[in-house]
Nucleic acid binder design. Structure first.
Lengths: 136, 136
DNA sequence: CCATTTGTCATTATTTTAGTTACCACTTCA
DNA sequence: TGAAGTGGTAACTAAAATAATGACAAATGG
């Protein structure tokens, strides 16, 4: 199972998008997510480094850098997921075995297809879509 | 990132499919995968419980229960992944917050779409496809 | 100057994953 | 029938990932 950072990050993005002009502190957002403010600041930091939001020390809250319709869930996923590969592979299969020798390159192709399919679906959903569903 | 059980399970399935009539012991398979025999037996047990292979105490090796062309990677994935949900979610978001109150049901839909896209791609690839690529 | 907030580091706790030891049950075969 | 070899499985350990938390410097605004 994949970690919950994407869920928390989307939650944060919705909060930021929902309160323009009246920014929420990390403590307030932590109250909504139900976690520690540092967790919020840490994930906000990833979103900021990915260019999705702005925030500065000393100033309460964050702001989106672009319209929610122009932010895909894949953008958010990439921001909070440092690993390129979705599936892990076993290390060092036996090179003296015909299967062990070639399994990695085969699985590379296979896993990449599955990952791409998933990412394509995330790319098709925007932050605005999430908000529409949420506030409907 | 998702654990490496799918990779190991596929490796095992290829080994089993590649040696009909001359079954490989868990120790031999462990040599190819480069892990401990118990890890092989543990994952083989999951594959057996899912009905993909047969194996019995005291008898060396395993056998497929059906043709490699009729075994999809999704079958294997489901066999070794006990969790239904691909993405984790944060627990207990604040029900007193309009966002926290509804985020889970929204993310359920979203995550389910992404997961389904991935699983569909895994369903489209068979063990035979893997072997064709591997032994080409 | 003072109170507040973010950014970030360091630490701890928890959970997951993988590796290993041990032992029982089963099969085969001498 | 008994020894040798094998899988099934529980229990334990080790390692890694994840999440939570405490602490504090730097920045901001009053």
């Amino acid at each position: 199972m994949i970690n919950s950072r994407l869920a928390v990050a989307i939650h944060i993005m919705v909060l930021v998008a929902s309160s323009p002009g009246a920014p929420l502190s990390s403590e307030l957002m932590a109250g909504s997510v139900n976690t520690n403010p540092v967790v919020i600041r840490r994930i906000s930091g990833m979103l900021r480094k990915a260019g999705l939001i702005t925030s500065r020390a000393g100033i309460t809250g964050s702001e989106l850098t672009r319209d929610p319709a122009d932010i895909s869930l894949l953008d958010i996923f990439k921001a909070v997921e440092p690993k390129d590969e979705l599936f892990a592979m076993h290390e060092k299969p036996n090179p003296n075995c015909p299967v062990g020798q070639n399994i990695q390159s085969t699985l590379d192709v296979t896993f990449h297809r599955a990952q791409t399919a998933m990412e394509k679906e995330l790319a098709n959903q925007s932050l605005k879509d999430i908000m529409n569903h949420l506030f409907k």
